[in-house]
Design a protein around this nucleic acid. Structure first.
Lengths: 195, 195, 195, 195
DNA sequence: GATGAATGAGTCTTCATTCAT
DNA sequence: GATGAATGAAGACTCATTCAT
């Protein structure tokens, strides 16, 4: 990859990070293209060189966020450890990723408000993929006898809600750092699953 | 209260219900004063007879929502049952209320994006009151030995996140009705607390 | 019709006239909603109370323009006079209307650049209706032996082009008034048809 | 002329052709510098090496278009044939040129919307020159008794309108090819002039 | 009390133009 | 000469808010 291309890629990532940060802090509609641009000391117009429109920008953010989450989760799924360790690790990684990137899942959880057409389909599919991966880990644990039986979808949704909400309450100035928070949360949440 | 006043109060409640329903479905910024008005077959202008501005309307919605939640929670707190039953009931009631009213806590969870000045202070205080009530129930259970020891705030936040997210995933057309969903969720979530 | 409704209708007509005048003078893209509004001493925002968007405004202008033209032409078609007189009158009326309203046919002649979907279909249909009416008059004259035989469509298009272009060259400050211009032009153009 | 200069000239012509084609198809404002560049597989920036700005580019296009038309018309004017043949030929050549190049006269007919200053003057002058040449042919025919007397300017404008509109209605997929269309039109239009 | 109408600030988006490399 | 990147002014459109009737 040429220098130019690397520079461009870097810029794209900067924009996406800025966008994700602001959106997770202020929400999609309250975040203007100007906000995103000025945080990066660019002008609004420049954003449109890299992304077709706001929906496009947010779509790529969401795609990256969910994509990386899925990848991480699937790697964990393939580990040669028991279900308990898998799910625990998945929770820790999810929360660490979320709190480190400070990137909200507002978009991910109401995709219909932000996307349409193919983009909507894509996001819905990614969310489904992530949920499925979680579900498989939970089902595996139930099948092996490690986890208690129960409605997998309800459990998974409670788990996702609990994890994702952390971005609203976690504070860097609080007593716990991100790793501690993630681990504590994971321990608490795992109790929903074990016998 | 005169007939006139009662009529006015009724209207105010209709407006608030309409507003809460729409905001929880579409989000604060995507819900326009027009949307709210036309759902009630009124004109936008009329809303301003009842509420000073959008912030005002949303403030009273939030206040009512949180206020009722607090009241419910405090009633439960005063019941003469053990901590387990209290917290379980609080979860059930919270979720039933949330899913029945279909009113989101988007506002409640990022008050700084929607309110300022005294209104912000008020909402923050209400959120704090609700959280405190939850915390007291949890602490009571820990003190009595029913619940496991642990970081109360983290546990409470995980609990709130899990409950509030339900509005995003619960579907009337799914296999479970609201009461069943609330009870199943409560059972799963209680496992975070018991020994 | 109530006073309010009549006022509204009047406003709508004022807006349409302003829009048609400006567009025929400066072209569609060069005419901004601001231009139209400020000519009427309104703000841009008000226009959007009456018309959904620019396409909508221009659509109704075009519809009215073509609609009235069609009506006029069809009335002439039904007159109990020979084909020569009919076509002559149709030309005069068309040009007088065009030059009086100072409303261009730029839109009418490239509808695909301005409209889409149903609106496009509608405009295309109206254009077709108008052309058909012209064609019928020409064919009638050919059938009756008054007019020379020939390719009806080519003749009609030459005629339309000649007439519509008048808006670009006719000048109020020139030696001829609108009526004189229309009549002179009609006499010249009729020579294309007669034997 | 050096190789380099010839290359540059060739590029300039390519750009002008691309620009004229697009503008006549989509209109001036709807044609972006990007459209023009990408049709030639160049980047927008490069255009600015060859033309100072969009007005400049369009000015040279217009100048060339009108210039060639004038040259053709003047050549025809100098032919040693009667007025009828001259005007007939002028019409045929004008239409063939127009339909072959598919280059509109939108610009030519509303120069005030596109040009200013010296450029405007120049375009106005060229338009005037072309009109004058037409007028001379018509006057010559009237003087020689071939053509009927009449308002030369009105006739010339009707003629120009009829010819120029052809770009809007002529279709390559129709039954007539360009030459046939031009000849048919010329025959019809000549009837406006002959006794 | 209600409503039609108007307003203006704010947001997204486009595009001609510039410039460093 | 060419290009990728950046810019800023302009334009379409939205929407909370106001106000006369």
């Amino acid at each position: 990859m040429s220098l130019r291309e690397r520079k461009k890629e870097k810029k794209i990532n900067e924009i996406m990070n800025s966008a994700m940060g602001l959106i997770s802090k202020k929400g999609y509609h309250a975040t203007t293209m100007d906000d995103i641009a000025s945080e990066l000391l660019m002008t609004k117009g420049s954003l449109y060189y890299y992304f077709k429109d706001k929906e496009d920008l947010v779509f790529y953010c969401t795609k990256q966020l969910l994509g990386e989450s899925i990848q991480q989760a699937e790697e964990i799924e393939r580990l040669d450890v028991n279900s308990h360790e898998k799910l625990h690790k998945a929770i820790v990684v999810h929360m660490e990723y979320l709190l480190t990137e400070r990137s909200g899942f507002e978009i991910g959880s109401k995709p219909r408000s932000f996307f349409s057409g193919e983009k909507l389909d894509h996001v819905v599919k990614l969310r489904h993929d992530y949920a499925s991966c979680m579900d498989r880990m939970i089902e595996e644990g139930m099948a092996s006898g490690e986890f208690e039986q129960g409605d997998v979808k309800v459990k998974r949704n409670l788990l996702l809600g609990a994890m994702n909400y952390s971005i609203s309450w976690y504070s860097l100035s609080g007593p716990l750092d991100i790793t501690e928070t993630a681990h504590k949360s994971a321990e608490h949440l795992m109790k929903m699953f074990v016998k």
